[in-house]
């Protein structure tokens, strides 16, 4: 167990991110959702409705 823990600590943070599919999934959903969808919808719904 100790060896396993040492091995984990030896792996750089960036490599741990790249090795975790669920963190990558989170990144892949979060960034386009925020910059493309949410930001875009905020702009569209802030357009005043014509009289």
């Amino acid at each position: 167990m100790a060896d396993q823990g040492d091995d984990d600590r030896d792996v750089p943070v960036m490599q741990r991110i790249l090795d975790n599919p669920f963190i990558l999934l989170f990144i892949g959903i979060l960034i386009p959702t925020m910059t493309y969808i949410i930001w875009g919808i905020m702009e569209l719904i802030s357009i005043p409705i014509a009289d």
Partner: peptide
């Protein structure tokens, strides 16, 4: 590949470059 995961999808925006409701910043 990580850069693909993070930002490849937002290239969709090029279809909306003449849509008047979206700002130039977006």
């Amino acid at each position: 590949f990580l850069m693909y995961i993070a930002v490849l999808q937002i290239a969709s925006a090029h279809h909306l470059l003449v849509d008047p409701g979206l700002s130039s910043e977006w």
